[in-house]
């Protein structure tokens, strides 16, 4: 359960996020949808505690991210927009490293390495060093590494960006499995198909503000467009006009 309340973030004179509020509940997939540069990554980075908001409040499972960042981070697993793997370590070593940093026992780590190897179809790459991996392979390892502790709250920043069909399917299956386990999943995208295929709720962010928040059906109704993409364009355009 992640609650974002009137959160703002400025970089110098640039307002990246402007009093954004939304909620991501357990057992649901919440999509953060917005054009490039809308403030999606900045919002996610504030949720997982790497950027400090200039105003507002973020709680993860009732724990304040600003007040107790390590405790909040322990309840989250996050995939940033760059996989950032260690090229000289094997897939397994990277996953184990993050598991050790999170204080898991070697038994837990081994069980979770097995789980993610199966879930993401990494049998062929688990013992290989990650230098020269394809984008899809890197993303799989990065997901397994970020979620090695099987967290309750999962934050994915454009996880399917640039992936081929097979890798995209594997990531979607993981997201659905997480939802079915009752996890709170937040993922950002600028691709409509991704969002409509997966999300229970959609938060549309345009120029740092929440332009709309609701189920796909609610968004369609609100804008009067039966097609979600048209609804999104209407919301994004409307917001830009008012600014």
């Amino acid at each position: 359960m992640i609650r974002v309340e009137t959160v703002s973030k400025r970089f110098g004179d640039v307002v990246a996020v402007d009093e954004a509020s939304f909620e991501a509940r357990d057992g649901l997939v919440t999509g953060i949808l917005g054009p490039n540069g809308a403030g999606k990554s900045t919002t996610l980075r504030m949720i997982y505690g790497l950027l400090r908001p200039n105003g507002g409040r973020i709680d993860v499972d009732g724990i304040s991210v600003a007040g107790n960042p390590l405790e909040a981070q322990a309840r989250m697993g996050a995939l940033p927009d760059v996989s950032g793997l260690y090229a000289r370590l094997t897939s397994r070593e990277q996953i184990e490293y993050f598991g050790q940093l999170r204080g898991l026992s070697s038994k837990q780590i081994e069980a979770n390495v097995q789980y993610w190897t199966g879930a993401l179809g990494m049998e062929g790459i688990i013992q290989r060093r990650t230098a020269g991996f394809s984008h899809g392979e890197r993303t799989k390892v990065a997901i397994a590494r970020a979620l090695v502790h099987r967290p309750q709250n999962v934050i994915l920043d454009e996880p399917t960006n640039g992936l081929d069909v097979m890798a995209t399917r594997a990531v979607r299956d993981v997201i659905r499995a997480l939802r079915n386990e009752g996890c709170c999943v937040v993922f950002s995208s600028h691709v409509m198909q991704e969002v409509s295929a997966l999300c229970d709720r959609i938060v549309v962010i345009v120029r740092g503000r929440v332009a709309a928040d609701g189920t796909p059906d609610e968004l369609r109704q609100r804008t009067g467009h039966p097609n979600l993409e048209d609804a999104f364009v209407a919301l994004a355009g409307q917001k830009q006009e008012t600014l």
Binding site: Y48, L50, L70, Q73, G84, R102
Partner: peptide, 17 residues
Amino acid sequence: GERERGALEPLLLNPVP
């Protein structure tokens, strides 16, 4: 080097001071 390769951000997501 890790900053350049984007490897610091995932590292800093771990609850480690």
